[in-house]
Design a protein around this nucleic acid. Sequence first.
DNA 1: CTTGATCTGCAACCATTGGTTGCGCCAGGT
DNA 2: ACCTGGCGCAACCAATGGTTGCAGATCAAG
Lengths: 135, 135
Amino acid sequence: MAPAGSTIDDDLWSAVGDPTRRRMLDLLLAEGSGTATSLSDHLPVTRQAVAKHLAVLDRVGLVHATPAGRERHFRVDEAQLARAVAQLTDVGAAWDSRLRRIKRIAETIQRGKDKDRAPTSDAATPDAPGDPTAH
Amino acid sequence: MAPAGSTIDDDLWSAVGDPTRRRMLDLLLAEGSGTATSLSDHLPVTRQAVAKHLAVLDRVGLVHATPAGRERHFRVDEAQLARAVAQLTDVGAAWDSRLRRIKRIAETIQRGKDKDRAPTSDAATPDAPGDPTAH
DNA sequence: CTTGATCTGCAACCATTGGTTGCGCCAGGT
DNA sequence: ACCTGGCGCAACCAATGGTTGCAGATCAAG
């Protein structure tokens, strides 16, 4: 267990990795903005839990708060979310291509002479519209 | 906090959501197969931790083990991983389209902005067909 | 066959985190 | 002035990622 290399933006990933947080982002995107309590109305968790999640999302810059009277309105930082999405599709694309290559090799080996490819079950999405975000 | 909708395939997501598990899948894909100890050699965590992660991945069917002598070799279930990748890009696409539409709306508003401003009217937009976290 | 080196699984234990309840505080509408 | 609704903070609980330590297999030699 030697190398400690980590994908620098793991924070973004794990921020988006939580189902609740994904749904929160969804709601925020759908409604434009919202407070902890307003979000908790549409979620199966308490206001305080939502507040914590908002804190997390805020820390990685996926949302940011604007105080309005006695309320704190949150809205999504679209640019940052775009970055996250880019990473998502990035990883997806990487794995996808690997799977594709492996599958190709397997076929090549199996039928040592036929080179054309057959419809290989449930392939994922085609090439991701990949964003040039590292890797 | 009312609706308790939990996306069925959240398991797949959170399985892939962990950075360590992602790197494990990466290693397995790269090397074809591996054991807990062999993987832990290339990871910053102990063998036992890797074993636990392998258990998780096994439970959701992303990998499966084949006993070989006194070792247990794990290899990736490509089909299942393909499904996971599909979900990844799926969510990514959903958010992406939302971001795009929002941008469009923003432009529209800016064009006609001088007078009346819609409070949260854009909130009522019927938006995407389904819960993007669902599939 | 015995010994020793590994590879494995199991158990106890710690730290983080998602979640809850409960409280006190402050902004506002009546 | 008063009550109401929204927030933050603190205590507390359960699950999980991670560690160390140990007992049980199994292979390779001696």
